[in-house]
Amino acid sequence: MKADSQRSFQTGRFDYGSFFFTGVTGLATYLILATLAVILINVLVNGWSGLSLHFITAGTENGMFNVDKAGVLPMIIGTSARVLLMTIFVIPVGVTTAIYLTEYAHSSSIFTRIIRGAVNNLAGVPSIVFGLFGVGFFINFIGHRVMDPMLHPNNPELIVWGKPAIIWASLTLAVMTLPVVIVATEESLKAIPQGLREASLALGATKLQTIIKIVLPQALPGIMTGGILAVSRAAGEVAPILFTGAAYYMASLPHSLTDQFMDLGYHIYVLSTQSSNVDKTAPILYATVVVLLLLTFTLNLVAIFVRAQMRKKLRALN
């Protein structure tokens, strides 16, 4: 046998395992990319021709299936409004829940564990179930049983709140996206070093002062991430708003919280199932899809931009 120093590094072996595995994992990745590309290209190619300034600034007053005259402005406004309203509802509730869970609750108590379990289960509930929950809880109970009798007790026939409305659709979406906001906020709160809290408390700050002045500013980008994820999830959802606020057709834009609204996602469903001539209306169907994608994209971009600004401010100090 040769001495070690004389042994060559050339073994002539080939690592088939690694070669094969690299191929398989790479293939899986490209398959996903390809699927995404096919969807996007299909939508853009078919929808681009239907897009025009008129399409995004006009309503449906000349018929929603009228390929030359129909527009989607009411749906853009409806979808934007419901997403915005949802954000206003979900952020405060989600953030305060996360603060309670990380800063106040004893992490090992049964109560905390039940809340955590509930949050995780909430994330796994199918969205149509949220839609039904919205009808049962918000419309029938809160709206019909509580608010209507309370706000106009002398007129039992009048129904203002006990019917589908943008506020109930937004609240339903808020309930659906709560887990996203809670989990994202919790993660960002947990990432803040305990030493900072101790430093503040040791100076004689109350827990509330410590949370507001020291902890929350650090957690803001994480909270924004939760908001972004919630917006992304909610913007394209149709099932939760199907019974709680989306309208098939409305002659005017919603101008109060109790109005129904037209929605891009629901409008896509309508165009693809209710049209008497699907082939003829296909251009506006595809164009609507493009608009929905662009809207979701824009909402995300704005939020990501705001978060980047916050991070920059924090990094200047970190």
Binding site: P193, G195, L196, A199, Q218, L314, N318
Partner: peptide, 8 residues
């Protein structure tokens, strides 16, 4: 504290 903990 042991580990200096200035606020950011």
């Amino acid at each position: 504290f042991q580990r200096s903990n200035p606020f950011p």
